[in-house]
Nucleic acid binder design. Structure first.
Lengths: 258, 258
DNA sequence: TTTTCTTATTAATCTAAGTTAAAAAGAAAT
DNA sequence: ATTTCTTTTTAACTTAGATTAATAAGAAAA
């Protein structure tokens, strides 16, 4: 765990109207003229160093966050064994900081993988903001539904897939989620992408050990399905990998209500 | 699988104003005078026989349903092995029929456990209904968030808990979910409740075989923590069971936005 | 009541993945 | 450049839970 301080963006916060993740965020349905709602809701922007905790399971925490840039994760820790279960990988546009009851006690922890920039919103303003902006509430239903689907897929992997199938699945999920953000073209001629998580992270997402994840990744590489080197991953045979994983790109789509 | 026909309630559909699950449903925030919205949205009521499929993964399906009475489940099946992963147990008040994209293709199947009565809503009317009724949209955010939490807990169980811990967890989750509906008092003097699922269902919810679930249930019974007989389960030592499961009743609470 | 089907139970055997422990390779810090 | 910390890699060994196969007990249908 990193102990560098979390900083606030002091000088000038990014304008919502110029935000790169505006169209995959909670506010995607707000028009330019309504975007003041988002800026009024936002309290501050935070810069989280790599591998740093944002909030901890069991603690009181009163903010929601939109990921502006970077990768993160939310997780639970078994208090008897200390084992970690990653619940979701966080990418730009993702919204975090949900709780179980209205108490403000967090049911899971959150942390960064890379440096992360977050927009913070006071949770007690959420409900009134949604009531005032029904399009935002509808968008939030979509986002929560997407989170249900991602979690259900991981549950399927942890419960009923082999290690190889599960790891292939995680790789494809992250590939397509990243691809959705970058408007398809840009830097990626082939199917290579930045992959900043560790093999231990992969294991903790689907209930495997880092040792076993390593064995399987070696196997996927020796079979010519993927290649990875220095936090960059290349999918060499997407069809075969998808078939092993029983993966379909629809699984990571974010707008069930259209 | 049961092949009895699914029936429609012909004569008189239940009135929403007199509905027993009104206060744990999507429409809980509608006042008596606004309840016409719910009745207008509802297309019909269906009676599903026990162990009957409602819709199937991969099929086009254009309805959402509120569970009016009975137990059900949603699940995915691995196409290579045929193994089933239960994604959620359905109890009265639960809303089902969500999809991943706007296409109407279902990402999972749904089926009954007991006889089930469902209220059906055409999915293409959902978005306009939510936009017109922001309180309903906010309630739906809460319900989807509750579903995320339930799924995350099962993921934690499947990925990082032992069989004993996971089974204890499932029992407690269902106990508290049932208890939430029945307004605490009524029939249950002790901690006994109707438990219509099979040991295979339990295994399919957390990634275990029916054989191993049986071994563990026997163990929990011999330790005096639970007792079960004829689809009725009694929790004999709630403290010990909760401690084994690392369970806390907050985990099944349904109103994060208050 | 008898048959049939489903669910629970038990036992023997197997295996996918876990555990432990080092060493090697990278990255980050000094 | 050197130290320190993290991550990856490999091997030897263990185990929780899977598999397979019967039997027994219930429940539903005929």
């Amino acid at each position: 765990m990193n102990f560098n301080a979390i900083e606030k963006v002091q000088s000038s916060m990014t304008k919502c109207s110029e935000c790169e993740v505006r169209h995959s965020s909670l506010f995607k349905k707000l028009s330019d003229s309504s975007l003041g709602e988002a800026e009024g809701f936002r309290k501050e922007q935070l810069i989280i160093p790599p591998r740093t905790r944002i909030f901890q399971e069991g603690d009181q925490h009163d903010y929601l966050y939109t990921v502006f840039s970077g990768w993160g994760l939310i997780y639970k820790t078994a208090s008897n064994t200390g084992k970690r279960q990653i619940l979701q990988f966080l990418l730009p546009g993702d919204l975090i900081g949900f709780q179980t009851s209205a108490s403000g006690v967090m049911p899971h922890s959150a942390g960064s993988v890379t440096e992360l920039i977050l927009c913070a919103y006071p949770r007690n303003h959420l409900k009134p903001m949604l009531q005032k902006n029904p399009e935002v509430a509808v968008q939030m239903v979509d986002m929560r539904s997407r989170d249900v689907t991602l979690c259900q897929n991981h549950l399927m992997a942890a419960g009923r897939k082999t290690a190889k199938e599960s790891i292939a699945f995680i790789i494809l999920e992250l590939f397509y989620r990243v691809q959705q953000q970058v408007p398809s073209s840009s830097k990626n001629t082939n199917d290579a992408f930045d992959f900043p998580i560790t093999q231990e992270d992969i294991g903790d997402a689907i209930g495997l050990t880092n040792v076993h994840v390593n064995r399987v990744i070696k196997e996927l590489m020796s079979e010519g399905l993927i290649h990875c080197n220095k936090k960059r991953l290349t999918i060499l045979n997407k069809e075969k990998l998808s078939q092993i994983a029983e993966f379909n790109p629809d699984m990571v789509i974010a707008h069930p209500l259209g």
